[in-house]
Structures are given as C-alpha cells and as structure tokens.
Simulated assay, not measured.
Amino acid sequence: MKILTFSTLFPNTEKPGHGIFVETRLRHLVASGRVDARVMAPVGWFPSSNPRFGEHARLARVPRAENRHGIPVLHPRYPVLPKIGMNVAPLLLAQAVKPAIGRLIDEGFDFDLIDAHYFYPDGVAAAMLARHFNKPLVITARGSDITLLPTFPLPRRMILWAARRADHVITVCNALRDEVVALGVDAQRVTSLRNGVDLQLFRPTERVAGQPFTLLTVGHLVPVKAQELIIGALPLLPDVRLVVAGDGPNRQMLHDLAARLDVSGRVDFLGAVPQAQLRAHYGAADALVLASSREGWANVLLESMACGTPVVASRVYGTPEVVAAPEAGVLMAERTPQGVADAVAALRAQYPDRAATRRYAERFSWDDTTAGQLALFDDILNRRLRQPSRAFAC
C-alpha cells in the first residue's frame, strides 16, 4: 500500500530530534515490506535564514526535500501568524500544502491513504486535504492535542470535526483513547496502538562503580516538563546529583533555581542531546525522572528502561500504562518537589535488578504496533474498495 504521512511533527536536517517518534513508527512500518511511504512535513515560512533570527532562521534553512532513512520527505512552507493564527492555522496549512500533494500525485505517487499525526492543526488540515483528494484518513492523537487544545472552544470543534471525518483515530495510549471518546467520537472508530522502543539502539551499557546516585531527566525545557520539580527535590536528596538533557526556554530559569537552592554543583546541564547519544546517559544514570504535567506516551521512559535504568514518573495520562510493574520504576504520589524526593527514596529502598528492567522494556517492541497499523490500514482500504463511490461529507 502507498501512504502519505502528514505532520508538522517530523525530524529535519535542522531539528533532527523534532517529532522523532513519528519517524520511528513510520520506519518500522516501512520495514515491514508492505508499505511504500512519502512524508509531507510542512515547515513554517520565514523570509530569512540569517542566524540573528534564531529559531526562525533554523526553520528557513530546512531543505524543501530530503531523504531520511530511505524515505522521501517534503517540507513545503506554510504561513504562521503569531497571536491571531491559532484559529486559522488548519486552513492555512491545508491550502499551503495542497499544491505539493497535487504535484506528488502528478509525479506518480497516487497514495492510498493519509496517515496524519497530531490533531491540531495537522489532523484538521489533513481532514480538509483528505476530502479534497478523496482519500481515506487516519489521524493519530499523541498528547496535548487531546489533553490541552480541546479546552479552547474553536479548536475543540475543529478537532471533533476532523475526528468524525477520519476513517479511524489512533491513540498512543488507552488514557488518550478515553479522552477522544469523551469528546464524542464513536469508540468503535478509536484504537490504541502504543509506541514502542528501539531495543537495538537502547540497550544496557557498562557502568562505572562508585559514582553518586544519579538522576537523569530528558526532554525540552518547557513548562509542561516541569524540571523545576526535580531540581526542587535536590535539597531533600543531599547525596544525589542530576543530569539534565535538553534545551528550551526554561533553561535560564532552571539554572537560576539551582543557584538559589544552592545545588548548582550537583546539576549538570547537557543541552540538547542527539537521540543516538542518549544511550550512554541512560546507562550511566541510576534513574530517569519525568515530572511532566501532561504526557501521552512518553518515549523516554521506555528508552531508559531498555538501557536497564528504572524510572520515577508523574502519574499522568498514559504514564501508568508504561510504568506498570516494580521493575519499571515508581510513580509519584504527587507532582511536587516532595513527591519527587519521596518517589526517588522509594525506588532506592527497593531498587530493581537492572536486567529485570531491561526485560520489562523488551515487552514493548514495535512489532505489535506495526501489525496493528497494517491490519487497520488494510481494513480501511478494503472497505473503500467495496464502496468506490464514497465521498467525504461536509
């Protein structure tokens, strides 16, 4: 089958870690030998690649087309309107991408199905495009697109519109599936297919004896990830050090907090770390800590476990589905510095065998997810063949 993966959440030469979970799932799907894929990963338009424009300049340097792991990827530009653009973003995205999809079809890739990721604006735009090109559509919900964006009235209506017009909705955990159904989508049209972990890339490493107990946190330094709770727990954990892998707008605030709490000497800020280099950091740590206020399915949890490192995590959305056994780690009783400290202490008191943690992670290969996608796509395309005159309703 030929599929078009559509999402603004996809890696590129300038941001190789951006949306890597979408790329990883697609790579495993293509590796099945049953799928030929192209990727439409739009990038916000900006007029200059001059470095003085920072993040915007980086996006301007993204190539119009590239090949990633043997999969052709196109990066058409779309307009981004600050402040006022949220409500019109799906329409702007769809209109900007429509000519690129038309050219792709004219050049011979007349795909069978659109595989869209993240509901807003991507999924809504994909629903518009699917109707225009008369193609089946599957949208994958991944986290804040369902747990946060529906709190805004117009995005909520558009998300529901797209979900009802999609042939099927995939969620990355059961908790998100419940949220989608609660929005008003027929439960029969929503399937949970959790993310997997690359067990070859993430595997145990040799450890150095005699090191202080080390916590690791991995993720963008943004409010939702709440790394300040982990730093805030360090005064309660006097013999513990923390390694922070990631970058983002909260970096200076976190530096200042560490200084104010007099724990700077025990906090190491690594900045952004390429995924291929994370294995060494997971392996060197005694525990990964994730204090997020929202998560769909946090890939870093399984990556850490695959390296033999147990986790401490907040009890939000899909995380209890990932951390579901003592060898996996401990869930916090509360999202506070005290809650982090108590969970770390509980983990240390009954620290699991690292080989058992690895074995737990091995239950989460990508095989089941790939099989689930193939079965779902086959069913949608077979139904389409039986109803050749079907058109998308307004």
Rank of each mutant, 00 (worst) to 15 (best):
F10D: 00
G17A: 02
H18K: 06
V22H: 05
R27Y: 00
A31W: 15
A31N: 14
S32N: 08
V35L: 14
R52H: 05
A57F: 11
R58D: 12
V62H: 05
R64T: 11
E66V: 09
R68D: 05
P72A: 11
L74E: 08
H75W: 03
H75E: 03
P79L: 13
L81A: 12
I84W: 11
M86Q: 07
N87W: 07
P90V: 02
P90F: 04
L92W: 04
L93W: 14
Q95L: 14
V97A: 03
P99W: 12
L104A: 02
L104M: 10
E107M: 01
L113F: 11
I114F: 06
D115H: 11
D115C: 03
Y118S: 01
Y118P: 04
Y118F: 15
Y118V: 12
F119A: 13
D122K: 01
G123I: 03
G123C: 05
A126G: 10
A127I: 01
L129D: 04
A130K: 06
H132V: 08
H132I: 10
P136Q: 01
L137W: 12
I146L: 13
F152D: 01
L154A: 06
A163D: 02
D167Q: 11
I170L: 10
N174Q: 14
R177Y: 01
R177I: 01
R177A: 01
A182Y: 13
V185C: 08
R189W: 02
R194F: 00
L199H: 12
T205S: 12
E206M: 12
V208N: 04
A209D: 15
G210H: 13
G210N: 10
T214W: 05
L221Q: 15
K225D: 05
A226R: 15
Q227L: 04
E228S: 09
I231A: 01
A233C: 12
P235I: 04
V240T: 15
V244N: 06
A245C: 15
A245I: 12
A245N: 13
G248K: 05
N250M: 14
A259W: 01
A259G: 00
V263S: 00
S264N: 08
G265D: 11
G265P: 01
R266I: 10
F269T: 00
G271Y: 15
P274V: 13
L278S: 01
R279K: 08
H281L: 10
G283V: 00
G283Y: 01
A287L: 09
L290G: 06
S293D: 09
S293E: 11
S293W: 11
S304M: 12
S304T: 12
C307G: 06
R315F: 03
R315K: 11
G318D: 04
T319Q: 00
V322Q: 15
A324M: 14
V330T: 09
V330M: 06
M332V: 00
T336K: 07
Q338C: 02
V340D: 09
A343F: 05
V344M: 00
V344G: 02
V344P: 02
A349N: 09
Q350H: 11
A356K: 00
A356W: 03
A361H: 11
R363T: 03
D367N: 09
D367E: 13
D367G: 02
T369M: 09
T370G: 00
T370A: 05
A371Q: 15
G372F: 07
G372R: 01
A375P: 05
D378K: 08
D378M: 05
D379P: 03
I380N: 04
R383Q: 12
R383S: 08
S389C: 09
R390C: 00
A391E: 15
F392M: 12
F392K: 10
F392H: 15
